[in-house]
Design a protein around this nucleic acid. Structure first.
Length: 343
DNA sequence: AATCCGTGGCT
DNA sequence: TAGCCAAGGAT
């Protein structure tokens, strides 16, 4: 039954920098496990459009896993800035170093061995073993969940229905071309069997689709409702020396924006207390920064002053003009910088 | 098991 | 616009 899907994939596969094109594949070229791993980690909860440029920059700068393993943490975190879910970048480095130091620079080729690596969970282990190593593992991501829920007209809500959907997905996975199949279902979910107004008219699985027959496809998969997001507030402090150097901090490895560069500031809560990093005549900027994270809205007020020559507060770092690159900042910190620069 | 963890695009 | 959604993992 999945042959109709593979046929559709052969005609419609989207070009992506980590994919082996039809001509190369016919010539026997296999995907590079390093590039498949890197793309799959970047694609966790992230769209192909957002990933594409990041992938090209990473693979240009670090062409193989050994090169990435040798990179300084700051450079990797800076290159990841803006992509979100920064624990992925920290685990990416950990994983690259384990593969380099303990696996002679080669990725393991089985699901179980891949699953042991940092940042590789059930989905990513299945995706790498299927796509890079041609093993019949079953990928289960948001796309596959949606396609299976519709194909079998399953009305039980996620995430409770996940085990059932996994069973259906496993039964649908072919022994032939499992890697192409995995990419085919996900392409289908991304371009045809979309969350809203699916294009059933051009779907290769229209005929066997039970939701399509019942007319319920637009309502599936059902999901348990999410909690509303609270709003938190905070103050941040941007100080620049006359020579252009700026005062920043490297955030602790755990928690929100862990390991990333940022501006010193207060905690983020309902009623934050001001916390300037050193004594000075701070002035507040007009306007505010609004940003929404996974589980709360944030409103930031920005304070600024000149950074005196001899001032270097504990735990903070001073980056001189050429060492500071705004593109190394996570988005919320970048928004604050842009507001400050436009003052 | 439930919570935490980013961001940008789309409707 | 405000919410939803994305090739999830760690704890």
């Amino acid at each position: 039954m999945s042959s109709a899907l593979l046929g559709w994939y052969d005609r419609n596969a989207r070009e992506m920098p980590w994919r082996v094109g039809p001509a190369d594949r016919a010539a026997g070229v296999r995907p590079d496990p390093y590039r498949i791993w890197l793309s799959e980690v970047m694609l966790q909860q992230t769209t192909v459009a957002a990933v594409r440029d990041y992938f090209v920059r990473f693979t240009t700068r670090w062409p193989d896993v050994t090169a990435l393993a040798a990179a300084p943490d700051d450079q990797v975190m800076g290159e990841w800035a803006g992509l979100g879910y920064y624990a992925r970048a920290r685990n990416l480095l950990k994983c690259a170093r384990v593969v380099t130091d303990e696996h002679e620079g080669r990725f393991p080729d089985t699901y179980d061995a891949l699953l042991k690596l940092p940042g590789i969970g059930p989905y990513t282990a299945a995706a790498i073993s299927a796509i890079a190593f041609d093993q019949p593992e079953t990928v289960l991501d948001g796309n596959v969940e949606r396609v299976m829920a519709r194909l079998h007209d399953i009305h039980d809500p996620l995430p409770g229905s996940k085990p059932v959907l996994k069973e259906k997905a496993a039964g649908f996975t072919p022994d032939h071309r499992p890697g192409d199949y995995a990419q085919a279902v996900m392409d289908l979910g991304a371009t045809v069997c979309t969350p809203k107004s699916p294009a059933c008219g051009i779907c290769p699985l229209c005929d066997p689709c039970q939701a399509r027959a019942a007319g319920t496809q637009a309502d599936l998969p059902r999901k348990t409702p999410k909690k509303p997001k609270p709003t938190r507030f905070g103050h941040i402090y941007i100080a620049q020396r006359r020579d252009g150097a700026m005062l920043l901090e490297r955030r602790p490895d755990k928690g929100l924006l862990g390991g990333m560069l940022g501006w010193p500031g207060s905690g983020w809560c309902e009623d934050p207390t001001e916390a300037p990093p050193f004594q000075a005549k701070w002035r507040i900027l007009p306007g505010e920064v609004r940003h929404t994270f996974t589980h709360f809205h944030l409103v930031l007020r920005i304070w600024t002053t000149e950074l005196p020559e001899q001032t270097a507060p504990d735990g903070l770092k001073i980056l001189d003009k050429h060492a500071f690159n705004p593109s190394d900042l996570p988005t919320v910190m970048r928004k604050a910088y842009d507001l400050w620069r436009g003052q």
